[in-house]
Design a protein around this nucleic acid. Sequence first.
DNA 1: ACAATTCTTGACTAATCGTTCCAGAAAGAG
DNA 2: CTCTTTCTGGAACGATTAGTCAAGAATTGT
Lengths: 191, 191
Amino acid sequence: MARHKEFERDEALQKAMEVFWTRGYEATSMQNLVEHMGINRQSLYDTFGDKHSLYLEALDRYQEVESRRLFELLEKPGSVKKALRKLFTGVIEGCEGERRGCLMNNAMSELAGRCKATAEKTRHNMAALEEAFYRALLRGKKEGELKELRDPRAVARFLYNSFQGLVLTAKATQDRKALEDVVKVTLSVLD
Amino acid sequence: MARHKEFERDEALQKAMEVFWTRGYEATSMQNLVEHMGINRQSLYDTFGDKHSLYLEALDRYQEVESRRLFELLEKPGSVKKALRKLFTGVIEGCEGERRGCLMNNAMSELAGRCKATAEKTRHNMAALEEAFYRALLRGKKEGELKELRDPRAVARFLYNSFQGLVLTAKATQDRKALEDVVKVTLSVLD
DNA sequence: ACAATTCTTGACTAATCGTTCCAGAAAGAG
DNA sequence: CTCTTTCTGGAACGATTAGTCAAGAATTGT
């Protein structure tokens, strides 16, 4: 029988995801990908198809891996408000170094307007995040922390929107005070 | 003496801005620009320098032309809340057709992370919009519409953030109800 | 050992990228 | 008209793009 693969598919995909995350879709060349993924050019094409297919798979992987961190944070027992604050201030911390934002956010901005598959995946991500916020809000309401919450669905959508806005804003500014103001007012909706 | 220019610099720049607005920076080729601007390739280079310089000038023009519309809307006498509602729902209307978002928003996402000049221009845009929100809030407070407003600077930053988030979100979704929920909760901060 | 299958390598398309060069047409001022 | 400058068109630049091909090395089951 045949030889086995000498690289881990998931590891290579992870690397590809990071390159797309940092450089975007158009600015990433196959040469960039070959170098960073550490696999052969031909293996890349054999395993992932063309550049666009690889990008879509990278979006899927991001959805699985990165979104999970967010879900876990919001589902962990304890104060919902504190979890939300941690989530939002985490964006501010993250803006210090890498400055690559969020892959889904970037995809929405760069490609969703002209690529249906990308638009679909970003919508799926949006739905998942909205749902995570929604469940957290319901939990907060049930546990008495957010008694006065009127329309959890609308607030969940609002939180998603503010979160994405913050990720984007943090890409251009280093003004922590400004970003903290945004978080402060955003979370005041829950009071 | 010499011949005069046969094209209007501002008109050509306007066209270039629209191309960058629709396609982004990387996905726009000089060929695209030549075709849409309606001027000669050589004239393009003579007049605007290279692609990157042209892009930065397009950002400047956007800042002047498009931001003014926003300023005028917010400075017009009348209810500040109504003006803000009009501004935000305008984003929802705009998402029906073109789907190109906002050039500054796009620039922030695509280039601000790796181009200092772009980051600077988007920061300038952010400061201008924040200031427009701030002045509108102060006016609302003075005129009694927003008596209970505590921290207008923070709320202005919050409004800017929600606005940019909405522009981005509207790029991927057509769910008007979801977008209207965002606007509803965002503006509820002023109540 | 042997055959089957797959990985690796590097050269190789054809197209497009941003940019420059050049020759000639057009239009102002003297 | 002539001189000067600028605009125009097309060809060309070298570099890079996404993607392919073919041949050999490696690893498996029999």
